[in-house]
Design a protein around this nucleic acid. Structure first.
Lengths: 223, 223, 223, 223
DNA sequence: CATGAATGAGGCTTCATTCAT
DNA sequence: AATGAATGAAGCCTCATTCAT
């Protein structure tokens, strides 16, 4: 991976004025909640692990849910931000033309690195998404308003270039997204201990998507 | 869907000697746990919803976890059993030749129906899988020993027939499984309220997989 | 010991019309209550150990306390009855003259055998005596009305014979009783696993009492 | 009694940094457990009597058993400590020669005062000894390693002085201990409401022991 | 007679949250 | 800002007891 995205926790620590205790609390909370789930993690456990008095947690985050959200919100924010930032640069400034396959490769590598750097946080997101309307809402809004339009624009861009079979964008997403997400989940959450050849697996995934969505003559069938 | 698989709850009720109260308890537990998660669901809530004294739950299931497992175990059992049962018939008795595409279609329809009939149960499985070693263990064992060999045999069967590009079986699974699972999750859990054309979506998914795994000349590109 | 007093449980079984299940219940209850105490023993444990349905216990004994009393009452009865029965015979019919030392020896042997045959029952008595007014009452009444008068008569008998220093009877009891009870408790409840020479220990106890209560010139100081 | 040993509760309060609530909890627990037994006393009752929230008990003592042990442990400690402390002074510094009878008198008075000041605590010890291996263990160890050696030394001391008949020490203990313990139990637990002449009763007990263990020529004190 | 499912009160314990220090 | 004692509601579970079969 060419660049290492810092973990969201680091971003939190650097960009927000957090005391050492706050950092400890957040770290402890992430560890414990990702291991046991939000409902099964007690504030007292978090305080103990953080080496902090229980009261301190409530002084900073008000409620247990406040603590959860203060962890989850930045994940959503970071989920949106960096994906397309660099693509935009490339696209807008035409620094270099990037083909569909290269783009996919690049994109998956980027999400791969993001996931790798934030496994516990993403575990939390995935687990709690279903049970907390606030999180569900925030995530869906973020997706609809920030992520999907970008994906859509990008896919349209490649459609225009004639690299994609003319399926409707939403259906394309429904194909590509599970493939990417499925790969990342398998890699990091279902079989994290397997001996992976990451580059090869990424390439394989890209290839599979290419077969599925590109026009016949353009997909390099035997490469 | 040609045949409606009965829900696992029905199987439980019919095949095991359960009292009326036990059925009520199981139903209430499935509802509440799938809505709020295991840890956030109290046995008192379950008892209330089931119209039963709290003690009755413990008389039958011993512990809260016992109740969870008595719900989850049959899901794992049913996850294994019916998938390939009918395929075997077809294969063994050569009643009719089934091509890869037809098989995939059939297979996805089958899992689609299974999921449709058991959404809350599967939600529970998915959510609690990560936190309960017993469930994780049971599921992984079931998959490795019962499901994967069948899938493997089936894929080999089609490889021999020359319908699949010669990728190694495990890699094929890593492609197909997320696509199928991703589709089903999107359909039933992420966007259940969308106005779906199920037959079309299934066909689309099949097609996508076909592009990804079949030899060029055999995939009917424009059908 | 010349004669083996049967255990109270045997008396119960033979003298009362008890069904096989009732016997099982009583036996299980004695075992469990003497091991864990009345309050810490559940009727369900007793039923399980007895191989009986819980309802059966309540059919026969009404309440848990009823069961306890049906165990304890015969102990009190048997505590009273056999002690002096044989002494009376001896005394009244003058079959043979028994000296104080022989009497004490005889008496302690008798209580020794009684205790040996009924350790768990006596454990229960001792433990629950303090917490159940019914038991306390029954025991104290039995003692005052049945046991103490007999002891008193006996001591007076030996006082008349000049074998005992003229202390008042109650004070004598306060000396003798703890010595006897203390010996039996040490033997059967505090150090039951020690390698005892029972005959020697009984003789020693008798001697100690003799020193304490007999007139100087009559106690065989150097034996 | 020349000096009043403070009750163990006072020692607890003074020597350990206990909050007012903790003291209340301990006091309530001692009262209720000594009255009803450990198993029959609920933490909710204790909390109510102590005027404290039930949770407060668990904040300080972790479990119900933790509370019991925090009560019982100091009893065992105090059971050991003060018995021979003062005797040592006398013995070592030869401040004054103390004869066997005086020593016994002194010793029984000391234990009398200890018991008087701690009746409920000792009731608890006696009742729960049988059911809690931790207590049994702690007590037996304390006895074997701390109390018995002291008693043994003391008896040997008097044997050397020729005041005791040469019986083996253990047998002597088996005689003396039940007599003393029996007296104290009768006085404080079996007939506490009787109108006792304590000094006379102690003297009587001493005398009884003297008759039992001393050499003939030394024992006929005054009777 | 015997069973065992069912009950609901109550037991021990945990938890999120508050507040005086 | 930080602490940690205190709370009381709620959680899981056990129990003696009842009753229909």
């Amino acid at each position: 991976m060419e660049h290492q995205p810092t973990s969201i926790v680091d971003i939190l620590v650097h960009e927000q004025k957090m005391t050492a205790k706050q950092v400890k609390i957040i770290e402890a909370a992430i560890e414990l909640i990702s291991e046991n789930g939000y409902a099964a993690t007690s504030t007292s456990d978090i305080a103990k692990r953080a080496g902090v008095a229980e009261g301190t947690i409530f002084r900073h985050y008000g409620t247990k849910k406040g603590l959860l959200l203060s962890i989850v919100d930045p994940v959503i924010a970071q989920f949106i931000v960096p994906v397309f930032a660099e693509r935009f640069v490339a696209e807008v400034f035409h620094t270099s033309y990037i083909g569909l396959q290269d783009f996919l490769h690049h994109f998956i590598q980027n999400r791969f690195a993001f996931m790798q750097a934030n496994i516990p946080l993403i575990k939390i997101m995935v687990q709690e998404f279903a049970f907390h309307p606030e999180i569900k809402q925030a995530f869906q809004t973020a997706f609809k308003e920030k992520v999907y339009p970008e994906i859509s624009r990008t896919l349209d861009y490649f459609k225009e270039k004639g690299e994609i079979r003319g399926v409707d964008t939403e259906a394309l997403c429904r194909m590509i997204a599970p493939t990417v997400i499925g790969f990342l989940f398998t890699r990091f959450m279902i079989q994290p201990d397997k001996d992976w050849d990451d580059e090869a697996a990424i390439a394989e995934t890209v290839q599979y998507i290419m077969y599925g969505i590109t026009k016949a003559e353009q997909s390099k069938r035997d490469s």
